[in-house]
Computed example of a mutant assay.
Amino acid sequence: MSEAQERAFTELAPQYFIDVPRGDAETSVHPDARMDPAATYGREARLIVEIGSGQGHAIISAASSRPDDDFLAVEVFRAGIARTMLDADKAGARNLRLVEANAPEVLATYLPEGSAEEVWIFFSDPWHKSRHNKRRLIREGFGATAARALKDGGLLRLATDWEDYARQMRQVLDAEPQFERAFEGDWAERFDGRVMTSFERKGIDKGRDIRDLVYRRKPRA
């Protein structure tokens, strides 16, 4: 990390960074750890979670334009977390928190069940080589993990510039009984709450179509 990014952890971490109890691995979450959103943000508000927030461009834009909502960025790369804290501070986004952790563990155990209004997954690693497809985040079993964290009626929003990954996402979530499509036709309209990022622009520049999906969490029995 750069000197400025190192300084972000020293000066800005108390405002933005959630130091979660760890399990066995460096970015794991201890299975007994639980987030208390009201205590974390100092209020009761809608919670939006972004998985794989990168350098934070999308979530900072959303947090700074929606001060009545709370936002949680989940990322495993410290340089990206540091950059997000620096830019969030400049933008005055005080309704944003960050956690350095594996996304499935955050969704499966750390977040209280039904606490998230929306979960965003934009341009997650497509692992486009066929031998690496098994490393993709959205694969069989992921739907149930995401459904646990979402409130009834909550939305799971996804976007990717890799067609085969988009089709895999759709296949996985169409088969998940706890979700239903919140779009018509083959693909959802572009989410207007998603700011254009370098990942999306890079895909467009290379001639790849951006595909959005959005699924609604069905009511719990």
Rank of each mutant, 00 (worst) to 15 (best):
I59W: 03
L86W: 00
A149V: 02
Q178L: 15
V195Y: 08
R7A: 15
V74F: 11
R139G: 09
G153W: 12
E189M: 05
G114Q: 08
L158W: 12
D209K: 14
S28G: 13
N102K: 14
E200Y: 01
P219I: 11
D87Q: 13
P21F: 00
V99S: 06
P126A: 06
Y41P: 12
P37C: 08
R83N: 09
S124I: 03
R139T: 13
R7V: 03
W127N: 01
G42L: 11
E118F: 05
P14E: 10
I210N: 05
F17V: 04
K206Q: 15
V49A: 04
P126L: 03
F123C: 05
A221H: 04
A146E: 02
S28C: 12
A175N: 14
H57V: 15
L86N: 06
V99R: 04
E6H: 14
E200F: 02
E200W: 01
S61M: 02
I138T: 05
R181P: 05
A4P: 02
A101Y: 04
P219C: 12
F77Q: 14
A38C: 06
D89T: 00
T197C: 06
W162K: 06
R190M: 05
R208V: 01
W162L: 08
I59H: 05
A63H: 00
Q15C: 07
P21N: 01
S64Q: 15
R22G: 05
A4V: 12
G54K: 04
G56I: 10
H132E: 11
R208L: 08
P104V: 08
A58P: 05
I48A: 02
G114P: 07
V172E: 15
L173W: 07
V20I: 15
I51R: 00
R78M: 12
M1L: 15
P31K: 10
G56E: 12
D70P: 08
V214I: 15
T84M: 09
P67S: 13
T40V: 15
A38R: 13
R78I: 00
D125K: 08
A166I: 12
T84G: 04
A146T: 12
L150G: 05
E176M: 04
D164K: 11
G54L: 00
A159W: 03
D70T: 15
Y215E: 03
R157A: 06
L96Y: 07
Y110L: 15
E105I: 10
P112G: 11
A88Y: 07
R139C: 06
P21V: 09
A25I: 00
A25N: 07
V119M: 05
F179P: 05
S61Y: 10
V106Y: 03
A91R: 00
A88P: 08
L111Q: 02
V74A: 11
R148W: 10
V172L: 04
P31F: 09
Y215W: 14
I121K: 00
D186Q: 13
A159S: 10
F179Q: 05
A63N: 03
I210L: 13
I48W: 00
A91K: 01
R83H: 11
A38Y: 00
R208D: 10
W187N: 10
A62D: 10
A63V: 03
A116V: 13
R66P: 00
A144M: 10
D19T: 14
D32H: 07
E3S: 14
V106S: 06
A39E: 14
P126I: 04
E176K: 02
F122S: 10
D87V: 01
E75Y: 09
L111I: 04
H132L: 12
F71A: 06
E176V: 02
Y165C: 05
D161P: 11
K151H: 07
T160K: 02
G154M: 06
